[in-house]
Amino acid sequence: MKRKLLGIIDATTYHEDLKDLLTHRSLAALPFAGRYRIIDFILSSMVNSGIRSVAIFPKIQYRSLMDHLGSGKNWDLNRKRDGLFFFPSAIVDSEYNRIGSFDLFAANMDYFYRSTQEYAIISNCFTILNIDFGSVFKWHLQSGCDITEIHDQRGSSLEIYLIKTSLLIKLLETRNQTGYTCVQDVVNDPHHGYSICQYVYDGYAVMIDSIKTYYSSNMNLLQPEMWKQLFLRERPIFTKVKDEPPTKYLKGSKVTNAMIANGCLISGIVNRSIIARGVKIGKGSVIKNCIIMQKCQIEDNCYLDSMILDKDVKIEAGTKIIGTPGSPYVIRKGTKQGALMKS
Protein backbone atom coordinates (compact mmCIF):
# COMPACT_ATOMS: atom_id res chain seq x y z
CA MET A 1 0.00 0.00 0.00
CA LYS A 2 2.75 2.44 0.99
CA ARG A 3 4.23 4.36 -1.92
CA LYS A 4 1.68 2.80 -4.26
CA LEU A 5 -0.75 5.70 -4.27
CA LEU A 6 -0.37 9.32 -5.16
CA GLY A 7 -2.75 11.86 -3.65
CA ILE A 8 -3.99 14.71 -5.81
CA ILE A 9 -6.28 17.36 -4.34
CA ASP A 10 -7.95 19.82 -6.62
CA ALA A 11 -8.34 22.91 -4.47
CA THR A 12 -9.50 25.26 -7.22
CA THR A 13 -13.22 24.98 -6.53
CA TYR A 14 -15.28 28.02 -5.65
CA HIS A 15 -18.92 27.86 -4.59
CA GLU A 16 -20.82 31.08 -5.14
CA ASP A 17 -23.28 30.31 -2.34
CA LEU A 18 -20.43 30.31 0.20
CA LYS A 19 -19.09 33.68 -0.97
CA ASP A 20 -19.56 35.39 2.39
CA LEU A 21 -17.14 32.91 3.90
CA LEU A 22 -14.74 32.88 0.94
CA THR A 23 -13.74 36.51 0.61
CA HIS A 24 -10.42 35.91 2.37
CA ARG A 25 -9.82 32.23 1.79
CA SER A 26 -10.20 29.39 -0.65
CA LEU A 27 -12.91 26.79 -0.12
CA ALA A 28 -10.28 24.24 0.94
CA ALA A 29 -9.31 26.46 3.87
CA LEU A 30 -12.86 26.97 5.15
CA PRO A 31 -12.94 26.35 8.92
CA PHE A 32 -14.97 23.33 9.96
CA ALA A 33 -15.92 21.53 13.19
CA GLY A 34 -14.28 24.00 15.53
CA ARG A 35 -10.64 23.44 14.76
CA TYR A 36 -10.29 22.07 11.24
CA ARG A 37 -10.21 23.34 7.67
CA ILE A 38 -12.25 21.28 5.26
CA ILE A 39 -9.18 20.08 3.35
CA ASP A 40 -7.98 18.37 6.57
CA PHE A 41 -10.50 15.57 6.12
CA ILE A 42 -9.45 14.43 2.67
CA LEU A 43 -5.78 15.08 3.39
CA SER A 44 -5.86 13.11 6.66
CA SER A 45 -7.76 10.29 4.94
CA MET A 46 -4.96 10.12 2.40
CA VAL A 47 -2.21 10.18 5.02
CA ASN A 48 -3.97 7.59 7.19
CA SER A 49 -4.25 5.38 4.11
CA GLY A 50 -0.48 5.39 3.76
CA ILE A 51 -0.25 7.98 0.98
CA ARG A 52 3.14 9.71 1.26
CA SER A 53 3.04 12.04 -1.72
CA VAL A 54 0.24 14.58 -2.03
CA ALA A 55 -0.07 17.29 -4.66
CA ILE A 56 -2.38 20.22 -4.02
CA PHE A 57 -3.60 22.41 -6.85
CA PRO A 58 -4.95 25.69 -5.47
CA LYS A 59 -6.18 28.65 -7.46
CA ILE A 60 -7.69 31.69 -5.86
CA GLN A 61 -7.05 33.16 -2.40
CA TYR A 62 -4.67 30.44 -1.35
CA ARG A 63 -2.68 32.41 1.22
CA SER A 64 -4.72 31.01 4.10
CA LEU A 65 -4.45 27.50 2.67
CA MET A 66 -0.66 27.76 2.41
CA ASP A 67 -0.46 29.16 5.91
CA HIS A 68 -2.55 26.25 7.14
CA LEU A 69 -0.61 23.49 5.40
CA GLY A 70 2.89 24.91 5.80
CA SER A 71 5.53 22.30 5.14
CA GLY A 72 2.99 19.54 5.75
CA LYS A 73 4.57 18.73 9.10
CA ASN A 74 1.26 18.29 10.90
CA TRP A 75 0.30 15.57 8.40
CA ASP A 76 3.77 14.05 8.60
CA LEU A 77 4.28 15.09 4.98
CA ASN A 78 7.52 17.02 5.44
CA ARG A 79 9.53 14.15 4.00
CA LYS A 80 12.92 13.90 2.34
CA ARG A 81 11.35 11.70 -0.31
CA ASP A 82 7.87 12.58 -1.54
CA GLY A 83 5.76 14.69 0.86
CA LEU A 84 3.52 17.66 0.18
CA PHE A 85 3.62 19.51 -3.14
CA PHE A 86 1.92 22.78 -3.87
CA PHE A 87 1.13 23.71 -7.48
CA PRO A 88 -0.65 27.07 -7.63
CA SER A 89 -2.49 27.51 -10.88
CA ALA A 90 -1.06 29.75 -13.56
CA ILE A 91 -4.53 30.03 -15.07
CA VAL A 92 -6.28 32.71 -13.08
CA ASP A 93 -9.20 33.75 -15.20
CA SER A 94 -10.84 30.48 -16.20
CA GLU A 95 -14.47 29.99 -15.24
CA TYR A 96 -13.73 26.34 -14.84
CA ASN A 97 -15.17 24.74 -11.75
CA ARG A 98 -14.89 21.01 -12.20
CA ILE A 99 -12.66 18.52 -10.46
CA GLY A 100 -9.33 17.44 -11.90
CA SER A 101 -8.62 19.96 -14.63
CA PHE A 102 -6.17 18.45 -17.09
CA ASP A 103 -4.72 21.86 -18.04
CA LEU A 104 -3.88 22.44 -14.41
CA PHE A 105 -2.24 19.05 -13.98
CA ALA A 106 -0.43 19.28 -17.31
CA ALA A 107 1.20 22.54 -16.27
CA ASN A 108 3.08 20.39 -13.74
CA MET A 109 3.73 17.27 -15.80
CA ASP A 110 7.11 16.75 -14.18
CA TYR A 111 5.44 15.83 -10.92
CA PHE A 112 3.56 13.00 -12.60
CA TYR A 113 6.58 11.85 -14.60
CA ARG A 114 8.79 11.80 -11.53
CA SER A 115 6.39 10.08 -9.17
CA THR A 116 7.00 6.38 -8.75
CA GLN A 117 3.53 5.63 -7.38
CA GLU A 118 1.58 3.44 -9.77
CA TYR A 119 -1.87 4.74 -8.90
CA ALA A 120 -3.37 8.09 -8.09
CA ILE A 121 -6.35 9.33 -6.10
CA ILE A 122 -7.81 12.51 -7.56
CA SER A 123 -10.10 14.30 -5.16
CA ASN A 124 -11.97 17.50 -4.62
CA CYS A 125 -11.14 19.54 -1.54
CA PHE A 126 -14.59 20.06 -0.03
CA THR A 127 -15.85 16.64 1.02
CA ILE A 128 -16.03 15.90 4.72
CA LEU A 129 -15.28 12.24 5.28
CA ASN A 130 -12.84 9.87 6.96
CA ILE A 131 -12.27 7.21 4.31
CA ASP A 132 -9.72 4.40 4.11
CA PHE A 133 -8.35 4.51 0.58
CA GLY A 134 -6.67 1.18 1.28
CA SER A 135 -10.03 -0.56 0.96
CA VAL A 136 -10.86 1.43 -2.18
CA PHE A 137 -7.51 0.48 -3.69
CA LYS A 138 -7.97 -3.21 -2.92
CA TRP A 139 -11.43 -3.11 -4.44
CA HIS A 140 -10.11 -1.29 -7.49
CA LEU A 141 -7.43 -3.92 -8.11
CA GLN A 142 -9.96 -6.73 -7.78
CA SER A 143 -12.47 -5.08 -10.08
CA GLY A 144 -9.87 -4.57 -12.80
CA CYS A 145 -11.40 -1.24 -13.76
CA ASP A 146 -9.51 1.62 -15.37
CA ILE A 147 -11.08 4.31 -13.23
CA THR A 148 -12.96 3.93 -9.95
CA GLU A 149 -15.36 6.67 -8.95
CA ILE A 150 -16.31 6.87 -5.26
CA HIS A 151 -20.02 7.25 -4.53
CA ASP A 152 -21.89 7.89 -1.32
CA GLN A 153 -24.63 5.66 0.11
CA ARG A 154 -27.30 7.36 -1.99
CA GLY A 155 -25.37 6.69 -5.17
CA SER A 156 -24.21 10.25 -5.87
CA SER A 157 -20.66 10.79 -6.96
CA LEU A 158 -18.31 12.17 -4.30
CA GLU A 159 -16.03 13.35 -7.11
CA ILE A 160 -13.10 11.28 -5.91
CA TYR A 161 -11.38 9.03 -8.45
CA LEU A 162 -8.77 6.29 -8.44
CA ILE A 163 -6.78 5.89 -11.64
CA LYS A 164 -3.53 4.32 -12.79
CA THR A 165 -0.87 7.04 -12.90
CA SER A 166 0.23 5.94 -16.37
CA LEU A 167 -3.34 6.28 -17.65
CA LEU A 168 -3.60 9.72 -16.09
CA ILE A 169 -0.37 10.75 -17.82
CA LYS A 170 -1.72 9.41 -21.13
CA LEU A 171 -4.96 11.37 -20.67
CA LEU A 172 -2.97 14.50 -19.91
CA GLU A 173 -0.69 14.06 -22.92
CA THR A 174 -3.56 13.45 -25.32
CA ARG A 175 -5.97 16.04 -23.91
CA ASN A 176 -5.81 18.24 -27.01
CA GLN A 177 -6.70 15.34 -29.31
CA THR A 178 -9.39 13.80 -27.09
CA GLY A 179 -10.93 17.08 -25.97
CA TYR A 180 -11.19 15.82 -22.39
CA THR A 181 -10.62 18.70 -20.01
CA CYS A 182 -10.90 16.84 -16.73
CA VAL A 183 -11.39 13.42 -15.13
CA GLN A 184 -15.12 14.03 -14.94
CA ASP A 185 -15.22 14.50 -18.73
CA VAL A 186 -13.74 11.04 -19.18
CA VAL A 187 -16.08 9.42 -16.69
CA ASN A 188 -19.17 11.09 -18.12
CA ASP A 189 -18.35 10.39 -21.78
CA PRO A 190 -20.31 7.32 -22.91
CA HIS A 191 -17.74 6.64 -25.64
CA HIS A 192 -14.56 6.82 -23.60
CA GLY A 193 -13.66 3.18 -24.06
CA TYR A 194 -12.46 2.79 -20.48
CA SER A 195 -14.03 0.67 -17.80
CA ILE A 196 -15.38 2.88 -15.05
CA CYS A 197 -16.53 1.43 -11.73
CA GLN A 198 -18.41 2.87 -8.80
CA TYR A 199 -17.19 2.19 -5.29
CA VAL A 200 -19.86 2.84 -2.70
CA TYR A 201 -18.56 4.41 0.48
CA ASP A 202 -21.09 3.80 3.24
CA GLY A 203 -19.56 6.03 5.94
CA TYR A 204 -20.34 9.64 6.71
CA ALA A 205 -19.67 11.91 3.73
CA VAL A 206 -20.90 15.42 2.98
CA MET A 207 -19.91 17.75 0.18
CA ILE A 208 -19.83 21.35 1.34
CA ASP A 209 -21.24 23.42 -1.49
CA SER A 210 -23.59 25.92 0.16
CA ILE A 211 -24.15 27.80 3.39
CA LYS A 212 -26.96 25.37 4.09
CA THR A 213 -24.84 22.22 3.79
CA TYR A 214 -22.02 23.96 5.66
CA TYR A 215 -24.29 24.84 8.56
CA SER A 216 -26.21 21.57 8.73
CA SER A 217 -23.14 19.34 8.45
CA ASN A 218 -21.48 21.24 11.28
CA MET A 219 -24.61 20.98 13.42
CA ASN A 220 -24.93 17.26 12.64
CA LEU A 221 -21.69 16.72 14.48
CA LEU A 222 -23.43 17.61 17.72
CA GLN A 223 -25.10 14.20 17.50
CA PRO A 224 -22.73 11.66 19.05
CA GLU A 225 -23.46 9.04 16.33
CA MET A 226 -22.33 11.45 13.62
CA TRP A 227 -19.35 12.73 15.55
CA LYS A 228 -18.10 9.20 16.17
CA GLN A 229 -18.07 8.38 12.47
CA LEU A 230 -15.71 11.22 11.67
CA PHE A 231 -13.41 11.31 14.67
CA LEU A 232 -11.83 7.92 15.16
CA ARG A 233 -8.90 7.42 17.48
CA GLU A 234 -7.13 5.09 15.06
CA ARG A 235 -7.68 7.38 12.07
CA PRO A 236 -7.31 10.90 13.46
CA ILE A 237 -8.04 14.02 11.46
CA PHE A 238 -4.83 16.03 11.46
CA THR A 239 -4.75 19.79 11.37
CA LYS A 240 -2.45 22.68 12.08
CA VAL A 241 -1.80 22.55 15.81
CA LYS A 242 -1.63 25.68 17.85
CA ASP A 243 -0.37 26.21 21.36
CA GLU A 244 -3.68 27.14 22.89
CA PRO A 245 -4.35 26.52 26.58
CA PRO A 246 -7.31 24.30 27.47
CA THR A 247 -10.68 26.05 27.32
CA LYS A 248 -11.66 27.81 30.53
CA TYR A 249 -15.26 27.83 31.71
CA LEU A 250 -15.67 30.66 34.16
CA LYS A 251 -18.18 31.39 36.85
CA GLY A 252 -21.63 31.87 35.37
CA SER A 253 -20.96 29.65 32.38
CA LYS A 254 -23.27 26.81 31.47
CA VAL A 255 -22.55 24.69 28.45
CA THR A 256 -24.62 21.87 27.00
CA ASN A 257 -24.39 20.09 23.65
CA ALA A 258 -21.44 21.80 22.10
CA MET A 259 -18.19 21.18 20.35
CA ILE A 260 -15.54 23.49 21.66
CA ALA A 261 -11.92 23.92 20.64
CA ASN A 262 -9.07 25.00 22.90
CA GLY A 263 -8.13 28.46 24.08
CA CYS A 264 -11.69 29.72 24.69
CA LEU A 265 -12.79 31.77 27.68
CA ILE A 266 -16.46 31.13 28.30
CA SER A 267 -18.51 33.05 30.84
CA GLY A 268 -21.90 32.77 29.16
CA ILE A 269 -24.42 30.14 28.20
CA VAL A 270 -23.76 27.92 25.19
CA ASN A 271 -26.21 25.47 23.73
CA ARG A 272 -26.07 23.45 20.48
CA SER A 273 -23.11 25.32 19.04
CA ILE A 274 -19.68 24.87 17.57
CA ILE A 275 -17.01 27.12 18.99
CA ALA A 276 -13.56 27.41 17.43
CA ARG A 277 -10.20 28.19 19.03
CA GLY A 278 -9.62 31.26 21.12
CA VAL A 279 -13.22 32.52 21.29
CA LYS A 280 -14.34 34.74 24.17
CA ILE A 281 -17.95 34.68 25.34
CA GLY A 282 -18.90 37.30 27.89
CA LYS A 283 -21.04 37.11 31.00
CA GLY A 284 -24.77 36.78 30.52
CA SER A 285 -24.45 36.08 26.82
CA VAL A 286 -26.46 33.29 25.25
CA ILE A 287 -25.18 31.42 22.20
CA LYS A 288 -27.58 28.99 20.54
CA ASN A 289 -27.37 27.04 17.28
CA CYS A 290 -24.29 28.97 16.24
CA ILE A 291 -21.01 28.34 14.49
CA ILE A 292 -18.44 30.68 15.96
CA MET A 293 -15.05 30.77 14.26
CA GLN A 294 -11.58 31.48 15.64
CA LYS A 295 -10.86 34.43 17.90
CA CYS A 296 -14.37 35.89 17.87
CA GLN A 297 -15.19 38.08 20.81
CA ILE A 298 -18.71 38.19 22.12
CA GLU A 299 -19.10 40.72 24.86
CA ASP A 300 -21.51 40.56 27.80
CA ASN A 301 -25.26 40.09 27.56
CA CYS A 302 -25.51 39.24 23.87
CA TYR A 303 -28.07 36.87 22.41
CA LEU A 304 -27.10 35.00 19.25
CA ASP A 305 -29.22 32.31 17.66
CA SER A 306 -28.66 30.47 14.35
CA MET A 307 -25.63 32.46 13.28
CA ILE A 308 -22.33 31.85 11.56
CA LEU A 309 -19.62 34.19 12.82
CA ASP A 310 -16.51 34.18 10.66
CA LYS A 311 -13.06 34.67 12.22
CA ASP A 312 -12.25 37.73 14.34
CA VAL A 313 -15.81 39.02 14.56
CA LYS A 314 -16.55 41.25 17.50
CA ILE A 315 -20.06 41.44 18.93
CA GLU A 316 -20.57 44.39 21.21
CA ALA A 317 -22.32 44.09 24.56
CA GLY A 318 -26.08 43.75 24.50
CA THR A 319 -26.37 42.79 20.83
CA LYS A 320 -29.21 40.48 19.88
CA ILE A 321 -29.24 38.78 16.47
CA ILE A 322 -31.38 35.84 15.45
CA GLY A 323 -31.15 33.93 12.20
CA THR A 324 -33.04 30.83 11.18
CA PRO A 325 -31.57 27.34 10.90
CA GLY A 326 -32.76 27.23 7.27
CA SER A 327 -30.81 30.37 6.43
CA PRO A 328 -28.35 31.14 9.18
CA TYR A 329 -27.16 34.72 9.40
CA VAL A 330 -23.51 35.10 8.37
CA ILE A 331 -21.25 37.79 9.78
CA ARG A 332 -18.14 38.36 7.68
CA LYS A 333 -14.59 38.01 8.88
CA GLY A 334 -13.19 40.76 11.05
CA THR A 335 -16.35 42.86 11.29
CA LYS A 336 -17.84 44.46 14.33
CA GLN A 337 -21.52 44.23 15.25
CA GLY A 338 -22.91 46.67 17.71
CA ALA A 339 -26.18 46.69 19.58
CA LEU A 340 -27.29 49.67 17.51
CA MET A 341 -26.68 48.03 14.13
CA LYS A 342 -28.62 44.92 14.95
CA SER A 343 -30.85 43.58 12.25
Partner: peptide, 18 residues
Protein backbone atom coordinates in the same frame (compact mmCIF):
# COMPACT_ATOMS: atom_id res chain seq x y z
CA UNK B 1 -10.85 16.75 18.05
CA UNK B 2 -12.52 19.61 19.94
CA UNK B 3 -14.10 18.70 23.23
CA UNK B 4 -17.55 17.24 22.79
CA UNK B 5 -20.21 18.15 25.29
CA UNK B 6 -23.29 16.00 24.82
CA UNK B 7 -26.94 17.13 25.10
CA UNK B 8 -27.15 15.60 28.61
CA UNK B 9 -23.91 17.13 29.85
CA UNK B 10 -23.39 20.24 31.94
CA UNK B 11 -20.06 22.03 32.27
CA UNK B 12 -19.42 24.74 34.85
CA UNK B 13 -16.27 26.54 36.01
CA UNK B 14 -13.71 24.17 34.62
CA UNK B 15 -10.61 23.88 32.49
CA UNK B 16 -11.05 21.30 29.75
CA UNK B 17 -8.68 20.18 27.01
CA UNK B 18 -9.39 18.92 23.52
Amino acid sequence: PPQFISPEAVVKESLINE
